[in-house]
Design a protein around this nucleic acid. Sequence first.
DNA 1: GCCTGTCAATACGCATGCGTATGGAAACTA
DNA 2: TAGTTTCCATACGCATGCGTATTGACAGGC
Lengths: 193, 193
Amino acid sequence: MPALTSKPVPKSRLSAAAWEQAALDLLAESGVAAVAVEPLARRLGVTKGSFYWHFATRDALLKAALERWERSDDSDVLTPIEAVSDPRERVRELIRQVSYRRPSHAVFAALLRALDQPLIGPVIERVSQRRIEFVTNAFRQAGFDDATAANRARLAYSAYVGFVQLAPIAQPRMNHDEFEAYIRDFIEILIPH
Amino acid sequence: MPALTSKPVPKSRLSAAAWEQAALDLLAESGVAAVAVEPLARRLGVTKGSFYWHFATRDALLKAALERWERSDDSDVLTPIEAVSDPRERVRELIRQVSYRRPSHAVFAALLRALDQPLIGPVIERVSQRRIEFVTNAFRQAGFDDATAANRARLAYSAYVGFVQLAPIAQPRMNHDEFEAYIRDFIEILIPH
DNA sequence: GCCTGTCAATACGCATGCGTATGGAAACTA
DNA sequence: TAGTTTCCATACGCATGCGTATTGACAGGC
């Protein structure tokens, strides 16, 4: 039974894309600092001799992986939700996405904790900008004036970021009903009536 | 001119408290990972031979420093604000404290980014619990029922945490007036009228 | 003035991480 | 089948961080 931690067996030979995906998986699980060459290689069942054929440096891998994530995050999360016409329902759906903690959100949470690093900061900055604009538009369509919509969007996004950070240590661990009630209040507070 | 980064000159001989304070300073500036024995010793103008006389291990220092911070954070931030009688004004004052980014908040922001570490998680957990209770009480006094007060407090605290995290990369860097307007909306949204 | 306890310097061993160099095996190509 | 390209293993050098061991300097108590 060869199962140390995950999958220490190389299917065949590796591609750069495989390294990038593995980096994102590890990133989501254990944070940016854990994305190191040797551990990744062990996980893929090879040695770092392989890695340095595909990438010049560790930062190059990180950069490529982040670009991959940023692309997929946009098209997987925001774009589908844009189809929802009612702005209240759209925001509700956005929040619901978060609660289900898809892999993309785990990556986001991990990146938030490494905002200070030069490779990470700009990514979060761009993603945040787009998301806040997305929510601002929803609020405008819900009838708020521009300034109010912007501030409510900032508040909503900050609350989202804070929630993502605090969720793993949430005190008595909210159950499903409590969470639904919280979301109801969340929406009601941000978009009254 | 012996000034490399800060103060590489030992006043005399060091105490454990001096190490703890230096650890908190470095923590606030560069995060938990930066709190390493040799860099700290350099900063204090000694070598690690000194450190291991005062502390058995690096984690022991971190633990002591965190206890020190947790104590002072309670008495410096929450307790003084409890004196403010009007709940709206109390929350407003709490938020204002954050905006001025006192050292204690820089420590908090750094700790948030290391929530996964076993020494950090419980500290943030306790501090968050107390703060959320504090805000929940304010909302109750403002006339909300228990469940609503709790959810609004969660939302407010999440927004606070998110704001602290995002502030360093805030897009066009809010100016003072914009920030004041944001705070006004923040209060208005959370405690209408 | 000695002696003991307090604080610190130096030197070491060990681990982990990055990146390089070089050689080998497997796969594709001609 | 011979040769080239692609992918990977092994071994090394270097840096940083933790913790230990040993020795030294300087204080105060006697």
